[in-house]
Write a protein that binds this DNA or RNA. Structure first.
Lengths: 142, 142
DNA sequence: CACGATTAAATCGTGCACAACTTAATTTTG
DNA sequence: CAAAATTAAGTTGTGCACGATTTAATCGTG
């Protein structure tokens, strides 16, 4: 295999690896909140933007109903969210936070701190990484 | 939430997103080989380094037996690999390529080309990304 | 207004990832 | 040498990700 071709593996595998490791950094921290990383992402969307449809959450997190429906059912079982069919358009399910769900935001406020600590990166390095990843995502989706 | 804390989400979510999208780039290409991305990684290890134990593959790919055992069984069902208990140490299962598995290497040789094309990145950009990711992985695991 | 197209969510099936545990073989050590 | 410790792989259970399909509601157009 040529060097150029080998390089692809040497980029994609570490990327796959890094994403897994970062989620593994979240795991023990989020365990205290009884959340997984994707569940945490849904909670962030709801904390920051309030009640919304399943498909709106899906658009923001790039997740389809096949992933979201069971995930949201688990958040509902934990009494963090409420799922309610829209009266006007019965196809739509609106997701809203319960009191318990809103309250969890405080407890979750220290999560990013802990992640930054384990990432061992400066604010500058984080910003650079954000830019690099953002550029690639833009280029892929162009 | 402070800007600094928000930055963590703005880095980790895009990273999680990018890793998913890159694997989604592989999906249709690898479908022609009837492989998933993790299966492809196992095949690469075997193509490049030959027969080895389950645990050696696991160390290289950072996957445990809970992930590898069923994955390897699927590769065996596809007649790409052979699983054989070591005669001397019966705990060890050695994985080796079948003729079919070795032959697949040729067909797979064009995969990185296609990925590079969809990533729309230059060799230079790829090398930079490799360095950035490598540095972070080193720092996390320090 | 009715019927075909579209939309939203749910469902089903496959496969990966990881934690926790089990099983069986081997190694260590008292 | 035998019991305890360790090791390798397998098993079980939970949850995510995604493709494909289904169901039910709504929309659009003739």
């Amino acid at each position: 295999m040529s060097d150029k071709l080998k390089l692809t593996n040497q980029v994609c595998f570490p990327l796959y690896q890094l994403a897994k490791e970062v989620i593994n950094l979240y795991r023990p921290i989020l365990k205290d909140l009884d959340l997984t990383y994707p569940q945490y992402l849904v909670m962030i969307v709801l904390w920051e933007e309030g009640r919304q449809n399943v498909s709106e959450i899906g658009t923001k997190l790039h997740l389809d109903s096949g992933t979201l429906t069971p995930l949201l059912k688990r958040l509902e079982q934990k009494k963090l969210i409420q799922r309610k069919r829209n009266q006007i358009d019965e196809r739509i399910v609106t997701i809203s936070l319960t009191g318990h769900g809103k309250k969890l935001r405080e407890k979750a406020s220290c999560v990013p701190d802990q992640i930054v600590a384990s990432l061992k990166m400066t604010t500058n390095e984080l910003q650079q990484l954000q830019n690099v990843i953002g550029n690639i995502l833009n280029q892929i989706n162009k």
